[in-house]
Design a protein around this nucleic acid. Structure first.
Ligand SMILES: [Zn+2]
Ligand SMILES: [Zn+2]
Ligand SMILES: [Zn+2]
Ligand SMILES: [Zn+2]
Lengths: 165, 165
DNA sequence: TATCTGATGTTATATCATAACAGTCAAGGC
DNA sequence: GCCTTGACTGTTATGATATAACATCAGATA
């Protein structure tokens, strides 16, 4: 079990940035249908695991759960499902944490930034259109043809800001 | 040797974003003096190695060079020097590549974004004040107390955009 | 001198990720 | 029907990245 997955550090209930897992799952399923993506049992279950998690989960955390439920026991099982979800807009990879989190808005294509709390390990997906526009300008100035970007902020979430120490 | 360090893929000479290694090194030394940082032999040499590299270097690439020159041969030697440089504004960590690059502007404190070319593996440090401001606004909206951020863009650098295939 | 501190070095291990290959199964062509 | 094909799942094995814990050493301090 990795540090960011320990969960015990959470300071409040609706802290993970994924308040309504059921609704998000429905959106994700709709997206998959609309695009002809095959949301197979492992993939579907992997998405559920991410949605039920507080904060982001490492691939081996996901693998542990999958293995315990009768799916494959080896790393590629988790990595394949996670990469599928990421590539199809159903999850995001958090590079700073070497971890994955369910997309909070799978209904629409979007640019996202992630707000990572160093106190409680929560990961919140924030709309990043404005940030992305600024980045696009910077790229243009450098003659760089932008494909996609990673935007990850570190600090204290709302709940943890209130708590003194 | 890792993929991003192979160097052979560069499509032009001044491609690494570190055009004037000597000048940057002098700035870095000045910064260290001004702040009372101990730029010891390993640390100084590590910075030189980063400056001479095309693109970003993995810790094990740096370690290989250090070891070949009579410094320690084990991973902590490289990681300690690299972390020191990063923590003191003399280098940056590129999370997407699991790699490190010398800071191109160590004279002043700054926010940086990184433009990573998928064709030639070059890494260019771009000014990111505007992006950072946009991110600060997004964080504020979310009640998030921002500490620092990682901004990494992936795409094609200027030189590689011109090359057809 | 005795002690303390920060830096460097080591061994050993933890953590993250992918290559390569084997078996399953459903869809489509003959 | 039966075969081919391609997507998916599973495996073994290995590679790549990173840190914990401890020993040593040199310079600063009292
Ligand atoms: Zn999203
Ligand atoms: Zn928090
Ligand atoms: Zn910089
Ligand atoms: Zn390029």
């Amino acid at each position: 079990m990795t540090e960011h997955a320990k969960g015990a550090g959470f300071c409040c209930a609706d802290h993970s940035g994924v308040a309504n897992a059921q609704g998000i799952l429905a959106q994700a399923e709709a997206r998959a249908r609309a695009r002809g993506l095959r949301l197979t049992p492992v993939r579907h279950r992997t998405l559920e695991i991410l949605l039920q998690a507080h904060g982001a989960l490492g691939a081996y955390d996901v693998l542990g759960q999958l293995a315990a439920e009768g799916y494959g026991t080896q790393p590629p099982v988790a990595y394949r499902a996670l990469n599928f979800l990421v590539e199809n807009g159903l999850a995001h990879r958090i590079r700073r944490l070497n971890a994955f989190t369910a997309c909070a808005h799978p209904a629409q294509d979007h640019r996202a930034a992630f707000l990572i709390c160093t106190r409680c390990d929560s990961v919140t997906e924030a709309p990043a259109q404005a940030i992305s526009d600024a980045l696009a300008r910077a790229a243009l100035d450098a003659g760089f043809q932008l494909d996609r970007a990673t935007i990850e902020a570190v600090g204290l979430c709302h709940a943890c800001t209130d708590v003194p120490a």
